[in-house]
Design a protein around this nucleic acid. Structure first.
Lengths: 209, 209, 209, 209
DNA sequence: GATGAATGAGGATTCATTCAT
DNA sequence: AATGAATGAATCCTCATTCAT
């Protein structure tokens, strides 16, 4: 009896805590969407989330920690978005094209994700960014092994891949881009990696499942 | 006599002013080299330059104006570095390869330039950044007109060009890169723009004059 | 039956409550021992006691109330320590010497008591501190009446008595002191009150029962 | 000419700075007088001094640093007050009596000094407090060497001396005390150090020059 | 009675910029 | 032209206390 109660109570507490945390994160995403990552202050965040100052600090020790949490949040969302499209796709060229296209789509629909992604791509502080980087690296290596890609320096290949991705997102955020901008960027990126134009074009425009 | 004196005084004043300004800029570059662009405070700048706070504001109206001045300074330095290599080179592919290679060289030797360049490339605040962008754009267009480059979307081509450039510099700042990293990045970039591998390779490795 | 049960339940509840309260106080004493009275936060206290924040406030209305409770706790402990030695001792000089000696012993073995005692001696918030003060006052007056002490101003006599006591404890807390430091301080204090050196020495070193 | 100007300018600047610092310290002393040392916040201090928040931080890095400065200030004032009375007085007993009497007088006329002195006496963080302690120590040792004082433990003698001093000041701050309270406390203290009552009385009441 | 999430007043600190000399 | 003291808005952060479950 008592133990059931205790367990329930604890559960409820945990739920409430999680909800508050989610509230803060959602509100923060809204702010980032309109104002970018750098300008909002902790005060802006708590006003937007309609929580007390102390509540913020109960959940995040510092502003940076919130930004990190936003990063994780977006990482999860992106994973959820992309992984299904990866299912059963082994060709590294296809995978890279899919990633670029999906990231551009995501940035178009969720500018806040875009802001966060660009930051994540640039600051190489481990975590998801590291995972992503490793994924790209693995695909690039595999592509080379399979003869799909041709380049001398893996470091340069990764650099141009990440650079293209970052710039694709950035451009989506700041300029008006056509509906197939993702496909176009994917094509150019594949070409950089050594895929022939025709083939790059074909892969970049394969229908997504 | 008197007029001569006055003229000389004015001249001396101007010289001194210029020297102080240069002092501040040099010191600021030193700071940027070690701490990047965002963190140093005005206090850091004036301590490093060994000038008074008021002196700083005699030369720059705001902190941002100093950063802009740093940008111009680097722009000039870069121009001075690159323009000679451009002389007589009309081929847009060659020009772009030269730019990338020189920027990487510059970032390697002057990390502070690298920091400033990346920022300039990203923040679209006009000025030199605009000029550079226009230069790239012109070369890209010309390259297309000449059939040197092949792509559908100029927007995407510029994006990948700038993205590759930015990432090349960034990688130079944060990772250990081989001596020919600039050449490699140039090659991949040209390929993205539609140049065939062999040709891209050749152009990327043409001896600089 | 039912009433027995109820009574037992209530009893158990009371016991549990008392135990929790004791837990908190013990833990707090531990903290005070290492960090003094002022620095520990409520958070420190509840972490040390391994109770929830709410539990703390179930037992103490404010942080200050805990400190008061610590005071009472120490007061009781001290009383328990000293009173037996007072039993049957009527000579005020002896009583004062006993008090000083015992306080020094207590502070040596329980630094946390020392911290609390010094604070109690200084902040004149009534309660035990008042009782103690009254005890000292009574003994000092009686000593004068009996011709054991000689001084003009009772106020000054009390001041020097309390001051010596406070400093004895403080010194015990912060410096390395010999085993008979309490006796020495007692002797000097008695002398201040007008007891002749020989006699003061003798009283200060009387064996404690 | 120019150098004269520069020197004058610098001089003026230094003066202004010193004046502002003095303003802050004076205002702080006023606050301490009415509210003690612990309660006033930085905000209270700057409001009282009528300076900007930033000005405070230009002069003191932290609240504690201001308190330290108050300590130095009072130390200087006290030195100025006492040293003349020490001139030509070699007898350690007399010197100690003078010190106690003057401290009590000072605390009566400048309660803020009293607050600061008590704190200085208790926190043994070096600086003036250390100097004072050494002074007392020297006098106590000399007194013993000369046979003026009689005690076994110098440590205890110093403790009772400082304790009496602290308590004398404290009592002056919190209770109503007669005009000769300083003399009385001095007498009791000397007695504690082993001076005979008659002699202690005489010394404690010697006219101050 | 115990729990722990939420609160928000109170206080500390930074730093770009102004201004008198 | 150079100096450096003063300014104050903007922001961060802590921690005692409340309260719903």
């Amino acid at each position: 009896m008592a133990t059931v109660d205790l367990a329930r109570r604890a559960e409820i507490g945990r739920l409430k805590r999680a909800r508050t945390r989610a509230t803060i994160i959602e509100a923060a995403l809204g702010l980032v969407r309109s104002k970018g990552l750098e300008s909002p202050t902790i005060d802006d965040f708590i006003v937007a989330a309609e929580v007390a100052r102390g509540t913020f600090y109960n959940h995040f020790e510092t502003r940076d920690e919130l930004l990190l949490a936003l990063g994780s949040h977006v990482a999860d969302a992106i994973d959820e978005l992309i992984l299904p499209h990866f299912a059963g796709v082994d060709d590294p060229a296809q995978r890279i094209a899919i990633a670029i296209r999906q990231f551009v789509l995501a940035a178009r629909q969720h500018p806040e994700w875009g802001h966060i992604l660009v930051r994540t791509l640039h600051g190489a502080e481990g975590g998801w960014s590291e995972g992503m980087r490793r994924g790209v690296l693995a695909d690039i290596r595999k592509g080379k092994r399979l003869g799909r890609f041709r380049f001398e320096s893996t470091q340069a290949a990764v650099a141009i891949g990440i650079g293209a991705l970052a710039m694709a997102i950035r451009t989506t955020l700041t300029e008006k881009t056509p509906a197939d901008f993702g496909e176009t960027m994917a094509m150019l990126s594949l070409r950089a990696l050594g895929v022939e134009t025709q083939e790059a074009e074909r892969i970049a425009r394969l229908p997504l499942r």
